[in-house]
Design a binder for these strands. Structure first.
Length: 108
DNA sequence: CGAGTGACGTGAT
DNA sequence: CATCACGCCACTC
């Protein structure tokens, strides 16, 4: 069926994240209407980890903290962000608000 | 079938 | 302002 599952939507949004920009689980959840299901977004990211072309490293919690960096297999997440010009310190993105990319505002 | 867990978020103390 | 506790949705034991 052509029904777009919430999962596909999540992957779609994550793929649309421009380089040097980051978003939050809650932002994606809210964009999909799952405001209270931020956890599910993270769970979807976990599944995306088995897929390809899913820059989940650009998705962080609302605090700008690399909560799932451990799932990337070490500091790969921090490295990727650094390559995009995003400064990370103590597993936290500096000027996170400045790099924040809101799908509801930019993608919508 | 019921309880517990999880890459989170918001509210209350 | 910082910390604790609860709630959401889906999945696993």
């Amino acid at each position: 069926m052509d029904k777009i599952n919430a999962f596909d939507a999540i992957y779609q949004v994550v793929r649309e994240i421009p380089s040097g920009r980051v978003t939050t689980y809650g932002a994606i959840a809210a964009y999909l209407g799952m405001k209270g299901g931020a956890r599910m977004v993270g769970w979807a990211m976990n599944a995306s980890h088995t897929l390809a072309d899913i820059p989940a490293h650009r998705v962080v919690n609302r605090n700008g903290v690399l909560t799932g960096k451990n799932f990337f297999g070490g500091n790969r997440m921090e490295m990727l962000l650094a390559e995009e010009g995003i400064r990370v310190q103590d597993d936290q993105i500096i000027h996170f608000k400045q790099h924040f990319w809101d799908p509801s505002a930019e993608l919508a």
